[in-house]
Amino acid sequence: MNTQIKAVPCQACEVRGKCIFSDLEMCYLEEVSEAKNFNHYKKGSVIFHENNYPLGLYGVFQGKVKMYKTAETGKEHIIRLAKEGDVLGYRSLISGEKYEVSAMALEDCHVCFVPKNIFMETLRKSHNLTEKVMELLTSDLRLAEEKITDLAQKTVKERVAETILMLKQFYGLEKDGKTINVTLSREDLANLVGTATETLIRSLSEFKKNEVIDLKGKKILILNFKLLERIANNFD
């Protein structure tokens, strides 16, 4: 990735269409654009840490990010993934509480940072931003509830299949039309599924043996989409 990318003013940013500032009134957008910083994070860098107070809002301009909680046991649980256009840490900013998750770059990333006072002031003034934040919160609530029902009822194999489908939906496929456009370590994938790494590897190997997927290093290729959907039990 080119680490020399220059900050683009929000008004001219192509990624803005995917982010919560997409409908922001122009006068407020100019204020946000003037106040924001543009930072580069190397793969594996922590963008913010669990239990720290938020200083502002992070918006992914380019790259992929994982958001995770560390359990008492020290085990990491990936709560969600982020890509360009997604904002990070907005909930703690609104509630004024500490971050409940950490955010780490899964690959080299460019991230915009909007200081807390500017974001909160914009939220106070902008009807459109309020609508976007409410949309985001209600969607996150629904997703969190759905994840509980999945975790409680689906087998590990079903959850692995479902996670692969989610990754395809979220990050898309590479030009070959088969390879999922994200590189996750087996451990990260296990933490996303909510299982032990060994159990995950067993499921992946079984899928590979049955020609549902193929594995090239850390990349996953989907060979039989319909069968993967059936395994994920999405049609019950």
């Binding site: 649980h77 509630s95 919160l137 609530l141 909510g194 299982t195």
Partner: peptide, 24 residues
């Protein structure tokens, strides 16, 4: 507005924690 957003955030966190406890 902030109260409602904070309550939504709280409910999301509660569900996320429940999700973690399901596999922990």
């Amino acid at each position: 507005r902030l109260q409602i957003m904070t309550e939504l955030s709280r409910q999301i966190s509660l569900n996320e924690d429940k999700g973690i406890s399901l596999h922990n």
